[in-house]
Simulated assay, not measured.
Amino acid sequence: MKSDFTIAYIKELINNEQFTEEQYIAFQKDSRKGVQKLLEQYEKKQKHKRALQHQFEEMQSFEKHYFQEGKQYIAGIDEAGRGPLAGPVVAAAVILPIDFHLVGLNDSKQLTGSNRNLFFESIKQEAISYGIGVIPSEVIDELNIHQATKLAMRKALSQLDPFPDHVLIDAVELTDISVSYDALIKGDTRSISIAAASVLAKVTRDRYMETLHNAFPEYQFGNNMGYGTKEHMQAIQEHGITQYHRRSFSPVRKAIYGGE
């Protein structure tokens, strides 16, 4: 049995989700392999969409809990760039509205570059408020990366207006802030607010490193984002370091001083 429609037309209907329930039942009864393949692909896509929707709802649990407690402004905080050998550490803080909806939002490292950029713009447009703290390599060397990360987070938090009445932070304890907070292990996969901050921080830092790539192409910052890849380490040995490298990091010291 086959329907009166061509496979090409059925494909258009399915891709655009413009079919009726009666038509879908007819497609299921269609004996053509091409039609059944289209239905298989459609069901797989729908299953993936349902999984993303479920994941998004799960990641709203902390925010919903504090909204129900009467909190109005819940901020998420995350950072990007703790591990690289060059460039700043960047933190972002963001307050999302209660009706924020962006299915697929997750830890920025788990997103494609194109999705990160799309989500970056959506988050900025829809956020009640957001802030970004950038701490350069010389301050990282002066303070250490842990303290520099905290400084970046406090800097991002200070930019929020209105100021939050609760904060969700990815793994870092900010004991000196004036509001209640939760430090969540792997928070960027457990909270939409932290995930949103993760996207803001990573895209901001990646774009910064791309500008450094233009100034110092031999280090390939646009590809390695400052991480200690084999090519990056070789470039340090051949060309030395820039003012953007973290001199306090052991691999940089070893490359400069030969094992000290």
Rank of each mutant, 00 (worst) to 15 (best):
L174H: 02
M233V: 06
S180F: 01
F67V: 10
F100T: 03
V172P: 04
Q18H: 11
M153E: 02
R207F: 09
T242D: 12
V167C: 12
A196W: 02
P164D: 00
L39R: 00
I95D: 03
L118P: 09
S108G: 11
M153L: 05
K155R: 13
A171V: 04
I74N: 00
A86E: 12
L168Q: 09
E57S: 13
E260A: 10
V199D: 04
R247Y: 14
V167N: 07
F19M: 12
Y244P: 11
K2F: 05
V252P: 13
T242Y: 09
M233Q: 12
E21W: 05
Q220G: 00
F216H: 06
Y257F: 12
S193F: 02
M225H: 06
E231F: 04
E12N: 11
D170S: 08
I123H: 10
L157F: 12
G259H: 07
Q46F: 06
H65W: 05
L157N: 14
T204D: 13
N115F: 13
R50C: 02
I128L: 02
L174T: 02
Q46G: 03
L157Q: 12
R253T: 15
A51K: 12
G258V: 04
I177M: 07
D99N: 11
F62V: 07
I14A: 07
E63A: 08
L160K: 08
L39Y: 04
F163D: 11
Q234H: 05
K2M: 08
K45M: 06
T189A: 13
Y208Q: 03
S198R: 04
A156K: 06
R205V: 11
L111K: 15
H48Q: 07
A8M: 05
E210K: 13
Y130Q: 00
L184H: 07
Q60A: 02
F120E: 14
A80Y: 09
G226W: 15
I128R: 01
G76P: 05
V89G: 09
V179D: 00
K186F: 03
N15R: 15
F62N: 08
A156I: 07
A197F: 07
E238H: 04
I74K: 00
F19L: 10
K64G: 03
F27Y: 11
Q243A: 15
K45I: 07
D141L: 12
M59D: 09
H48D: 01
I95C: 01
E138D: 15
S248R: 12
K2W: 05
L85G: 13
H232W: 03
Q23R: 04
E12R: 08
T175C: 07
I241T: 11
E43W: 01
G133Y: 11
M233F: 08
I10R: 13
Q23W: 05
A80C: 15
F19P: 06
L174F: 04
Y9R: 13
I256H: 03
E231D: 14
N16F: 09
T211P: 05
S122M: 14
I14D: 06
A8C: 02
A75F: 04
I7L: 01
S158N: 09
L212V: 02
K64H: 10
E231C: 01
G34E: 00
S137F: 13
M1G: 10
E17K: 14
L102H: 04
I77S: 07
E22V: 13
N15K: 15
